[in-house]
Simulated assay, not measured.
Amino acid sequence: MTSSARRIAVISAGLSNPSSTRMLADRLAAATAKQLSERGIEVEVDVFELRDHAHDITNNLLTGFAPPALESVINAVVSADAVIAVTPIFSTSYSGLFKSFIDVLDPDALTGKPVLIGANAGTARHSLAIDYAIRPLFTYLHAEPVSTGVFAASSDWGASADNVAPLGERIDRGARELADAIARREPASDSDPFDPANYLGEGRSFGHLLGGLAGE
């Protein structure tokens, strides 16, 4: 990857395999990569299935220590130029697995980072969860979620989709906004993205260094 290339970390919190959450994540990533390519910007996309790290995430919450595999995921996410975050909607909000992963990140790790939010559920009546639950979460972490959040209901994946804005249009709009946000920023450092020193400020406790819950 060249020094001007950008990295996007995609986190998918789907619980099944395959899942509509991952399908949405892949489409958002592909659309964003296409938008960046049209701007002459090289991009590298890393997709992480949180279900593969569910036990490690729980152990991190309980012990304050991130096992190596989870630590690699954390480092890749927080050192990326932008994040695409997709979660299923359970009980009118993001999934517990999604929130647990966010909880193991350092509170300052996503500051200023562009984020494209995606969510999916069985019916379109859950679409508002993006704006009353997920967007405030990233805003609290001082990330910069783009204006368009992309929600997909089960009907969006079929020929009988009846939403005002078809899924493909929403994906393209969100991808364009994320690509614009990435293009306005300087590329992330070319130093080792898996070195904790690259995303944690000086003076952090050892617990913070490993994604723990220092300060509680």
Rank of each mutant, 00 (worst) to 15 (best):
V115F: 01
R184D: 13
S4I: 09
S160T: 15
G149Y: 10
I11G: 04
G212V: 05
A129T: 14
N60C: 15
K113P: 07
L105F: 14
L97A: 10
A119T: 06
E71N: 06
H126P: 04
A161W: 05
T139K: 03
Q35D: 13
A152Y: 09
P67Y: 11
S20I: 04
A25L: 04
A109P: 01
S3P: 07
N120V: 12
F101D: 12
N60V: 10
A29N: 10
L62H: 02
F206I: 12
R173Y: 01
N59I: 00
V73K: 04
L62C: 04
S16W: 00
A179M: 02
I89K: 01
N198E: 13
N120T: 14
V77Y: 02
D108L: 05
P88R: 12
L15Y: 03
V73G: 00
F98Q: 04
A124S: 08
V43Q: 01
D192R: 08
D26E: 14
D103V: 05
N120Y: 09
I11S: 07
L105W: 09
A197N: 13
F98T: 08
E144P: 00
L24C: 07
S72D: 12
T21D: 04
H53W: 04
D172M: 01
G203R: 06
G212Y: 04
A161N: 15
P67K: 13
W157C: 00
V10T: 11
P187I: 05
D106A: 14
K113L: 06
A152G: 08
V150N: 10
S16H: 12
G40R: 11
P145D: 08
L213Y: 13
E216M: 11
S127M: 14
T58P: 01
L209N: 09
K99G: 04
T111R: 10
D106V: 00
A197Q: 09
T32Y: 07
R173H: 13
E186M: 10
P18E: 11
T32A: 01
A183V: 02
F90N: 15
K113S: 01
I130C: 01
G158Q: 11
F151W: 09
S127T: 11
A33S: 13
S93M: 12
T123I: 02
E144S: 12
R51G: 05
D46M: 08
E144A: 05
R176E: 09
Q35S: 12
D106G: 06
A183W: 00
